[in-house]
Design a protein around this nucleic acid. Structure first.
Lengths: 237, 237
DNA sequence: CGCCCCTTTGATCGAATTCAACTTGAGTGG
DNA sequence: CCACTCAAGTTGAATTCGATCAAAGGGGCG
């Protein structure tokens, strides 16, 4: 991982796009990189509240749980997304690698200093947190009011739109798009507020209707995006 | 409404606590106050993306909807809470007064300028947004995995803790606490991802079990807070 | 007093869960 | 290379929790 900021693949989309070119070498020296294999926590306990990070590659998930084990995945972080809580109380929810993940991370105090120093960064950061809040709210609507089929369709669409800009999707024949879901059935269930059996059934239903096709376990082909969008918020009509 | 910042009842808790005393009179001149009756939108369309506000009194709700009318209440804002999206894209979700509300609001550009000027304010603001995100995530857990009874209990507890610091709760006899729910049955249902019938049944169940007592429509007495807390995340044991 | 709206209550229905068995596939070692 | 194991996913049948449908209370206000 001999990456530098100058050659960083997501530089144009990540928070650091707000930093002036001139500071780039300096930033580069502060940044540390790390590879986290699927299933592992991104940070150990000491770090959890003392670092912030940007996802370079792979997908990370953030989850919260009840004492009895019921778990809700509350957010997915795709390449260029930010993870961390500057200035915030030390009760970070659990962040884990969903797929193999590559991170670029900073000490929290250092990042906070950057935030104060560069107004541009501050703005971009605030926008990023707001976007995260919007995403959480949209998911609340999904969890509160959507049917199982709508939920499954919504998740596929989200993965599609977030994976598209990178090279993680393959455009098969004409309009078909192939993606690899970054989550296991269990994780999908925990994200959608369903059981794994229902997730399996809904995937099947979507594939028999023909809007998607299921390849191997996590691989799917989106065959009719418009149809999928309709099914993501069909209403009861 | 001849309030001034100096005599403001929530000054010690709201964002503006981060502003130095010296600037208070200046801030006071920038602030506008308004009373919004229950059920009305806090802002008209022009304003929606160009102002930010602090709740002085009452409770506001923020909600998002699907095309077919299904609506999810995604947040409640109690006195001292902040509402608004500095720097953010202009797609503000709908903010309405749940009860009669008193607001203190600023032009968004002015507030953004303050944010850049006073680092202290920036920190406090970021903490506030982070807290909002945490609240949204906790609610995602509720919507994704809690039972109807747990949801109802959770809502009552949230109202209890948020209403307590102010004078909106009355401590009746020994340990009983009386609160006025800031939401109608319909709004409760939209917040909890249930129907009004289920909300009604769960309130009844909680009252027959004895953890609460129902007075008039919105008034309830919390008779056994510990019991309520247990029922808010009981698990399936 | 009577009207309207919100809430409660009851009976039935249905989508998703639960329980249980079966399939698949990746990894391991004989 | 095949038999075995174990985890992950699928499929089916029964169950259940909350939704839906329907009707009956309140309570505020003209």
């Amino acid at each position: 991982m001999r990456l530098t900021c100058r050659s960083c693949s997501i530089r144009s989309r990540a928070l650091c796009r707000a930093l002036p070119e001139a500071t780039l070498d300096q930033i580069n020296r502060l940044a540390r990189r790390r590879r986290v294999p699927a299933g592992r926590a991104l940070f150990n306990e000491d770090e959890a509240n003392n670092v912030v990070a940007t996802v370079l590659a792979g997908v990370a998930k953030v989850s919260v749980s009840l004492a009895d084990g019921r778990t809700q995945v509350v957010g997915l972080h795709f390449p260029s997304d930010f993870i961390g809580r500057p200035f915030a109380a030390p009760v970070a929810p659990l962040a884990e690698a969903a797929t193999d993940v590559e991170l670029c991370f900073f000490d929290r105090p250092r990042f906070e200093a950057l935030l104060v120093e560069h107004k541009g960064l501050e703005e971009v950061f605030v926008r990023q947190v707001t976007a995260e809040l919007d995403a959480a709210r949209e998911w609340m609507l999904l969890l509160g009011h959507k049917t199982a089929e709508e939920r499954m369709a919504s998740l596929i669409l989200q993965c599609l739109t977030r994976l598209e800009p990178s090279d993680c999707v393959a455009h098969v024949p004409a309009t078909e798009v192939r993606i690899e879901l970054p989550l296991s059935r269990t994780e999908i269930a925990q994200f959608l507020g369903l059981t794994i059996e229902t997730v399996s059934r809904m995937l099947k239903r979507l594939s028999t209707v023909g809007v998607i096709a299921i390849e191997s376990g996590r691989g799917i082909r989106v065959r009719d995006r418009a149809g999928l969008e309709r099914r993501a918020e069909a209403g009861k009509v």
